[in-house]
């Protein structure tokens, strides 16, 4: 191309364009390198979700699928009282789980970031390991602990503190919150830890030198700077837990049923896939709107503080 360039009117400009491309070849290489992963992942997410959207516009008529496009599934998903109650409850439970998990995790992350000196590696490994291991089993463990004949009840009975097993331990929203706060702990600790670890320690010294006490220093320097970690932790817990159905199915009981249990039922016993798809997509839409609003609000809040 460079050899041909002088022949044409626009030659110098074309040559410049080629030079620019060469200097940007790093960028091109970057695009080439990321494209296999990007294309595979996009295809694997977009194709199924697009198909689910189409499917949600069809209707189930006994054993057949009526392929006339209609919004009737969405009408049912948004107006039927049961679905609204379950979605509202799922959002409540997940919001509470997020609050509890992040609240409990923050001091832990703070401890590892600021007070652990020599064995940081061991602490990080100990925090990380449980969350790579079986989710199903970790949830099931709570059923054993809180159950009618579970660890807590049989333990209290053995100590003579109660005569009858406590029934309020299992099969309610509280047991779902406890179980999820346990299952998702590492997801909260690690992002917060990373953001705390990145804080420049000299900023803390500066705040102290300028007369801030420990509490003011924490509120004005440490906490705002760790906000990205808190936001990441919140989203990474809130969004997946709204769609969790293992925990409500095992420890939730009737009162603790969540929206994912209904979605699963539509794909199972109820056998109304189009309605199931419509509920799933409405749920995803609601969760996305809430998450975006949360990110926007926290950004605004930080701007006002800063």
């Amino acid at each position: 191309m460079s050899a041909r360039a002088p022949r044409t009117e626009s030659g110098p400009r074309r040559f410049a364009g080629f030079r620019a491309l060469l200097s940007r070849s790093d960028a091109v290489r970057g695009y080439v390198l990321i494209s296999p992963t990007f294309i595979v992942m996009t295809a694997l997410m977009v194709a199924p979700v697009a198909m689910a959207v189409v499917y949600s516009l069809w209707t189930q008529s006994y054993l057949d699928i009526d392929k006339t496009l209609t919004l009737s599934n969405y009408a049912e998903a948004t107006t039927e009282r049961m679905y609204r109650v379950l979605l509202g409850r799922s959002l409540m439970i997940s919001g509470l789980v997020t609050l509890v998990t992040v609240g409990l995790a923050y001091p832990m992350a703070y401890f590892v970031a600021f007070h652990v000196k020599r064995n940081k590696l061991i602490w990080l490994i100990m925090i990380t390991v449980p969350f790579w291991t079986s989710y199903l089993l970790r949830v099931f463990a709570w059923k054993i602990i809180l159950g009618f004949n579970g660890v807590v009840n049989s333990g209290l009975k053995g100590l003579g503190l109660i005569d009858q097993p406590l029934q309020f331990l299992l099969y309610n929203p509280t047991s779902v919150v406890i179980t999820l706060a346990h299952a998702w702990a590492a997801f909260a600790i690690l992002p917060i830890y990373v953001s705390l670890e990145k804080i420049d320690r000299s900023l803390l010294e500066a705040a102290t030198d300028l007369g801030d006490g420990p509490v003011r220093r924490f509120l004005r320097v440490t906490l705002p700077l760790s906000l990205p970690g808190i936001i990441a932790a919140s989203l990474i817990i809130f969004i997946p837990t709204v769609g969790d159905y293992v925990t409500p199915a095992l420890v939730g009981g009737a009162e603790g049923r969540m929206i994912a249990n209904i979605i699963q039922a539509q794909f199972g016993k109820a056998n109304n896939w189009p309605l199931g798809a419509a509920i799933a997509i409405s749920t995803m839409a609601v969760v996305t709107v809430i998450s975006l609003a949360y990110v926007w609000l926290t950004r605004k809040a930080t701007e006002r503080i800063a």
């Binding site: 940007r24 790093d26 960028a27 091109v28 970057g30 695009y31 990321i34 992963t37 990007f38 992942m41 996009t42 997410m45 194709a47 199924p48 979700v49 198909m51 689910a52 499917y55 989203l235 990474i236 969004i239 997946p240 709204v242 769609g243 969790d244 159905y245 994912a260 979605i263 699963q264 794909f267 896939w273 199931g276 798809a277 799933a280 997509i281 749920t283 995803m284 969760v287 998450s291």
Partner: peptide, 29 residues
């Protein structure tokens, strides 16, 4: 390069989609 970070964000999206939704969508497909 511009666009690499957004592409990366899209690759990480499954972290913030409930598995029940991805699972049922794949089942339909």
């Amino acid at each position: 390069a511009p666009g690499l970070r957004p592409a990366m964000a899209i690759i990480m999206v499954p972290l913030v989609i409930p598995e029940v939704i991805l699972g049922t969508a794949l089942l339909i497909l």
